[in-house]
Design a protein around this nucleic acid. Sequence first.
DNA 1: GATCGATGATTTTTT
DNA 2: ATCATCGATC
Length: 780
Amino acid sequence: MTDLLSSLNTAQRAAVTASDGPVLVVAGAGSGKTKVLTTRIAWLLEQGVYPGEILAYTFTNKAAKEMKERVARTVGEDRAPFWIGTFHATGARILRTHAERLELPRDFAIYDSDDQKRLLKGVLADLNVDSKQFGISGVRAAISAWKNEDIDPTAAQAAAMSYVEETYAKLYEGYQKALRNCKALDFDDLILETVHLLEKHEDVRNQYASKFRHVMVDEFQDTNELQLLLVKLLSCQHGNIFVVGDDDQAIYGWRGAKVENMLQFDELFQGTQTFRLEQNYRSLGTILDAANAVIANNKQRKGKNLWTDAGRGDLVAVEQHLDAEDEAARVVEIVQQEMAAGRQRGDITVLYRTNAQSRLFEDALRRARVPHQVVGSVQFYERREIRDLLGYLKLVANPADEISLQRVINQPKRKIGQTTVSRLVACARDNQMPAGDLVMRPDLLLDALGNAASKRVLEFLTKLAGWRRQAHENTPVPELLEKIIADIAYEKFLHEDEPDTAAARMENVAELVNGTHSFHEASDGGTLGQFLEQTALVADQDTIQDGEGAVRLMTVHTAKGLEFPVVVMSGVEDALLPHITSSDTDAGVEEERRLFYVAITRAMRRLYLLHASRRRRFGSYEDSLPSRFLNEIPDELCEQREVDHGWKQPIGRSLFGDESVSSPARRSPRAGSRASSSRGASSGRGPLGHRERQPSQDLYSAKSQASSRNKPEPSAASWDHDVAQSTPYYEGQLVNHASFGAGTVIRVEGTGDDLTVTVDFPQRGRKHILPKFAPLVPLD
DNA sequence: GATCGATGATTTTTT
DNA sequence: ATCATCGATC
């Protein structure tokens, strides 16, 4: 009991042992926020609270899993709370339990933004709205904003002040109808409908409000209005609401998050106790000073100053490169240098503002044969072949899911075109039955589609019915998926469709099959619905892989909450870091500055800030200026370098224009944003060799938030592997898998295409591998 | 209904 | 530069 608290500092301990009632913990970057949350949970349990009485919201599934594990380690597996999760996952869980009150089937589908856009496209067509004038993405964003403010289509139409607004509102109405017709909820609905459920049904509200005697929220600065409302509803009986956050790390304003939730917490909840954590256990002094100096320029903040008693560390390396290609080449070099200095590859993370930037780093690292992992971006689940197969599974689970139907009905080609699909969908609507169920009414199909088309459609729907029967008979998900892949001859289709990429795609398919196997084992025979829910709600961060073996690449947004010994922040340029679309308002620039602050504070020991003088945009080069935020870091904390790669001629002649050389006085943080290309240029290209890092005290091994990474689901690892096909396998054999790495063969079953090899991967656990899909290379 | 080639948007960040 | 979409053509 006392050892629970013994490793905490005074402020942390005070927060952990706070009495009942509303509690706000303002926790600076690296101040032990997660530790406080998990210890608070453990402490509550020791005070006699039951595990089922605690509800904790996290930002990602990964964070939830980590929190669960950390608590379990302290209090024992059997006493760990089981309601720890994201707002979305928890919402889905509650909604499925009370599906009957929502007039939705229990196995409603969850639509992501891609599904939403496909759905919207149809709505625009139905309502004869010009998609040039009303961009799909814009409409989607508007609908999302409405939902986040709890405004329904009727209210939106009532509030419309112009023809354009009215059209948006009409589209919202149509979208909502179409969504429900597909028996689907979108991400926003998962929270909105949970709120409605609790608002409208007193018994349900009382059930949860009395069940969860302690409600906790991590990353509170990034909650939106609905989430606040939800949390209020859940804590209305006891008022035990414990939230942790950092207003300086609020970076989701664009998604409807309201820092005000945090800034005004004590007004929203009477009798709030506030605690502040300002000691940083993550970064060396220089890095922390740089972060503090940058964020001090923001006006909208509570204000705090992080401090550390760790050493100073190296200066921040600020480097100017000619273009983004050079920047990428430099990243490879940095990786090599850092590794030569004893760092592991997995210690190094490359951050960027936009996903589009990742491509060049991937290319450079691949060419240099440096193992790396892109977290997010072209996510595993967004690849076409994966979405296709998931589409099949979604359609099997929910025959009303017209979006999935449209996706898969002609994939592989079945000679069923757009006209037929539209007629089919219309026929389903006219007869008020799920499109998938029309297999039972060949007569209707014949009327609606004519002879030839209805025959092809019927053929498809009959196949679908077969899979559905299997699903109802509780066929394991992996078996079902393999059956579908076989029935539709998907491998053959991939080869005919695009021979060049077929092998790579098939490997992804194999990963998916592996994923269903892992799911099946981990969930002890979980249902198709559970599998689909899990895949629908995966976050970028959830795909982070174990191990020290790979350099990681991710956006700053994805990096939130994580820490790395070495951080390379790329593209620190005006137009990119204060992103061009956010730099016209003060609020926008401040959020961008917080983003930069988040990037800096991810670094534990060493920080690189890279910018290029020119960058391709839509094909052609455009000049790029160093970010105005760079000026906000005091000179004495930085080591400037202009790295000349020698073999390239600068094209933009204005690169080192007159003003740049003349003004080494690059102070004037507010106004001076434009005159700042001096930074790299004026410092010349002297022999700015690396300062050798002094071996100061080892903050790294004493890290407070040891990121104990868990086994992720299907990975997006990407590095070269030229591998030979099928080799006979035997038990005890050492083999290498393209994305799981080295492992030991545990069992070999089947022959030919059915050959299944069970392999034990040290860090990833046991996996069933089908060599037919994913070659295993013997390492003997 | 499929295929080819022209055209135009796309790049902010994500559960 | 790349991708998706659209229209003309078979």
